[in-house]
Computed example of a mutant assay.
Amino acid sequence: MFIQPWDACLDDAEWQTWIADGHDFGLLSVNGPPGHAPVTVPTHFTADAHRLLIHLARPNPVWKAIEHDPHVTFTVFGDYAFVPGPWRAKPGTPPTDGVPTSYYTAVQFTCRAHVVDDPEAKADLLRRQLAHFQPDGDHAPVAVDRPPYGRMLPGIRGLRLDVTDVRAKFKYDDHKPVEQRTDVAGRLASRARGLDVPAARRQLRRVDRTGPWKP
């Protein structure tokens, strides 16, 4: 993932807070055997200290790819929006001379994958995930010897991704003048299509923290 200096995260807390704020779905990418395309799997995940926890169906082709190469990438993205060219035109130039772009946040984890097959370890992984996704506890106990989860555990495998590196990108035109960035945020909020509103909020947070771009 290419990151311009003005698109870099301001500190680790920025991407960590973004992930914790409900961004818990991403794309697992694993190198396939020679001559085969990488295997990619969209999935929910749970962040646990310096690890990501995932579970997938046993027939998933990702397992063979992980056996071939346990070094994987997990990408989470969001707060994205298309910004039309006229919104980015320089002052005093025709609006049609503006060049469009995309705004987005992306956090990319480089990890080493460890397969979890022990029944009790898988149950513990599921308990951790349910604590995140269903914190009210409105689910049956996850136990290897009790339904419904006990009879379903053989059909899944757990995956622990030990994070070795994190790259985060917040692409919101931070190198443009504050007035222009604020104006674009207002236009996004008014258009309010797709993820326009969260993208506008993210841009304004960056404006508040960075002000005018300083190389």
Rank of each mutant, 00 (worst) to 15 (best):
A13Y: 10
A123G: 15
K64G: 04
G150E: 04
Q134L: 15
V76Q: 03
M1W: 03
D79W: 05
L195N: 02
D173A: 12
R127N: 15
I19L: 13
C9F: 06
V41P: 00
D162C: 00
V99K: 13
Y80L: 10
P42W: 02
A49N: 10
D117M: 07
L10S: 04
G150T: 04
Q134D: 07
D145R: 00
P135F: 07
R151I: 15
L204R: 09
Q16S: 11
P148K: 00
A89R: 10
A57Q: 13
A13G: 07
S29C: 09
V197D: 00
A106W: 10
T101W: 03
D145Q: 06
P5N: 09
R202D: 00
D69S: 12
P42L: 08
I19T: 01
L53V: 11
T164Y: 03
L56G: 00
P154A: 08
Y149P: 03
R112Y: 04
G92H: 07
D173F: 08
P135M: 14
V76D: 01
V62I: 13
R157C: 05
R193W: 05
A200E: 04
G137E: 07
R160L: 04
F77M: 13
W6G: 06
C9G: 02
W15N: 07
D118S: 05
A140I: 02
Y80S: 13
T105V: 14
D138I: 10
R209T: 08
P5G: 06
E120V: 13
P100N: 12
P94S: 06
A168G: 04
G98W: 08
P154T: 08
F74H: 08
D136L: 12
D117A: 10
